[in-house]
Amino acid sequence: MRTLLFTYIILLFAVNASLGQATIVVKNDPMPEEILLQAKHYADIFGFKDDVLIVISFSHSVSKINSGYTLYQNVQHLGGGHQVHIIISKREDRNFQFYTLAHEMVHAQQFVEGKLVKCGDSFFSWKGDKCLNTRYIAYHHRPWEKEAHKLGTKLYQEYRKTKQMLASH
């Protein structure tokens, strides 16, 4: 099964690469269509190209203090591109999962553009500044979280308005 999924992702990556679009895969969600539409909408806004692979997974193992998180790996030096894995809590209601996706897609953009760089286990650099130990910075004081909250909220609200307008026509 794992080989089949990997083959599917490779094929999907090849198709989207020929279109110049990011590849987005949704896992462990019973109704992935809306998540995929929303993620593609944000990827287009951020200008993600064919060198970006985004895997969005839903899990019960997300800590109770988080609604989601983003993992990032740059494999351009190996002939690949940007790999983003967004994990969203299955415990949250659907609307909050949608908001969390917008928030985490902002983090994806921060990583892909090099504004946010992971320097070590809990160390991050923001916009080229020195690496900071996040253990000593409250979540709501981290500049990348402030940006993700502000922009993620705006993106999600605009997405909902666009969706409502399309539904009314």
Score class of each variant (00 low, 15 high):
Leu37Gly: 14
Lys127Asn: 09
Lys49Cys: 07
Thr100His: 02
Leu166Pro: 11
Leu116Gly: 00
Asp50Ser: 10
Ser122Thr: 01
Leu101Gly: 03
Gln83Asp: 06
Ser61Arg: 05
Trp144Met: 01
Thr162Asn: 15
His103Met: 11
Ala14Asn: 09
Leu19His: 12
Met105Val: 08
Gln109Ala: 11
Ala167Val: 04
Asn66Ala: 10
Gln110Ser: 04
Ser67Phe: 10
Pro143Gly: 06
Val55Ile: 11
Tyr136Asn: 12
Lys161Asn: 15
Ile88Ser: 00
Pro32Asn: 10
Ser67Asp: 11
Lys154Glu: 15
His41Ile: 13
Thr7Leu: 00
Tyr72Glu: 05
Met31Ser: 11
Lys150Thr: 15
Ala138Gly: 12
Gly114Asn: 08
Asp44Ala: 15
Tyr99Glu: 06
Asp51Ile: 04
Leu71Thr: 00
Leu19Tyr: 12
Ile137Phe: 06
Asp29Tyr: 06
His41Met: 15
Ile56Pro: 01
Leu151Pro: 08
Ala138Ser: 13
Gln109Glu: 11
Val52Gly: 03
Ala39Trp: 00
Phe111His: 03
Phe46Gln: 08
Phe46Arg: 07
Ala138Pro: 07
Glu92Asp: 11
Ile45Asn: 14
Val62Met: 01
Leu132Asn: 12
Gly81Leu: 02
Trp144Val: 00
Leu37Cys: 15
Met31Cys: 09
Asp29Gln: 08
Glu113Arg: 10
Val112Tyr: 01
Ala148Leu: 06
Asp129Cys: 09
Gly80Ala: 10
Tyr8Cys: 10
Met31Lys: 12
Cys119Met: 07
Val55Tyr: 02
Asp51Tyr: 08
Gln109Val: 04
Arg2Leu: 00
Lys118Ala: 00
Gly68Arg: 00
Gly47Asp: 12
Ile54Gly: 01
Gly79Ala: 04
Lys127Tyr: 12
Gly47Phe: 14
His140Gln: 13
Phe123Leu: 04
Lys163Cys: 12
Ile56Ser: 01
Tyr136Lys: 15
Asp121Lys: 06
Tyr139Pro: 07
Trp126Leu: 02
Tyr99Arg: 14
Leu101Phe: 10
His60Val: 05
Asp50Thr: 03
Lys49Leu: 07
Ile56His: 02
Lys90Ala: 07
Val117Thr: 03
Val15Asn: 09
Lys27Ser: 03
Thr134Glu: 02
Ile88Asn: 00
Ile88Arg: 01
Gln76Glu: 13
Phe6Tyr: 01
Gln97Phe: 04
Ile54Trp: 01
Tyr99Gln: 11
Ala138Tyr: 09
Leu166Phe: 12
Ala167Lys: 13
